[in-house]
């Protein structure tokens, strides 16, 4: 992180009583990993481009991290988006958060929802790559699409890294752990994998911040962002009459909604 951010981190720890800063660093292989700063001695200067940065908000859902109460987190655009969504879902109660967003040689500090809203309204996320992939999938016939996904999902080992890394997957008891009934079949079979991915997409529908953290951590490189983006498009198209303050489309309805496939 740049000089100014490091100075500010030192200031936050000394003056504001911040106990923990979740910063980012690179390991010896060049992967971006979290760097936990517990005291001023832990501060390191590392160079990570803003587009390379990851979203470590998943840590904030852990009880042992929550117990620090006053936390700073280094993030980018997606971090702010996640912060906004988690606030809406009442997951950041009793937490004092300082979001630090590095810019060229300065940084932006965000502490409230109002500031986050202002920050987000000024920026636009590029979706060219994922749109292209979604387009390619949608162009296929039904059989081709099924074969494409079955071939891709064959590599999935249900390691649930996508769940662990997702800042929106915070339920303390997940459906995958439920075995009466066994919702997600445990054996290495395609129908269990298929069901897990359908379930993951459905539980994130309308809430996903599209930070692509699930794709980045997937050891099988499964393009989960295609599903996330597809649902995002569908929700904004089908429920376009919703006003923009609604953050979870499936928790809401309009009485005059008409759906053409329900006869």
């Amino acid at each position: 992180m740049n000089q100014k951010i490091n100075q500010h981190i030192a200031y936050l720890m000394k003056e504001k009583g911040v106990n923990l800063i979740i910063s980012q660093a690179k390991d010896s292989n060049g992967f971006v990993i979290p760097h936990f700063i517990l005291s001023e001695n832990d501060i390191i200067s590392s160079v990570i481009a803003i587009n390379e940065m990851r979203n470590f908000f998943a840590y904030l859902n852990k009880q042992e991290i929550k117990s620090f109460k006053s936390i700073g987190i280094v993030c980018n655009y997606f971090g702010v988006k996640t912060f906004f969504q988690l606030k809406f879902e009442n997951q950041l109660k009793d937490l004092e958060l300082f979001l630090l967003i590095p810019t060229d040689d300065d940084f932006i500090e965000i502490t409230s929802e109002k500031q986050a809203e202002d920050y987000l309204s000024g920026l636009k996320q590029s979706t060219i790559l994922v749109d292209e992939e979604l387009e390619n999938v949608k162009k296929m016939s039904m059989e081709e699409r099924w074969n494409y996904w079955m071939k891709t999902l064959e590599l999935c080992t249900k390691c649930y890294a996508c769940r662990a890394a997702c800042p929106m997957c915070y339920c303390s008891s997940c459906t995958t752990e439920c075995n009466i009934p066994q919702w997600i079949p445990v054996p290495a079979s395609l129908h269990g994998i298929f069901e897990w991915h359908v379930m993951r997409a459905m539980h994130l529908a309308g809430r996903c911040t599209e930070c692509d953290e699930c794709v980045k951590v997937c050891p099988a490189n499964i393009p989960l962002n295609i599903l996330n983006k597809g649902l995002h498009n569908k929700i904004s198209e089908a429920f376009s009459s919703d006003d923009s303050s609604i953050k979870y489309a499936l928790n809401f309805f309009q009485p005059d909604e008409k759906v053409d496939f329900i006869k």
């Binding site: 699409r145 459905m202 529908a205 295609i226 489309a249």
Partner: peptide
């Protein structure tokens, strides 16, 4: 169902 149908459609 609108959302669920879309997931299934994308997955073929």
């Amino acid at each position: 169902w609108v959302v669920f149908k879309e997931v299934l459609d994308i997955m073929g």
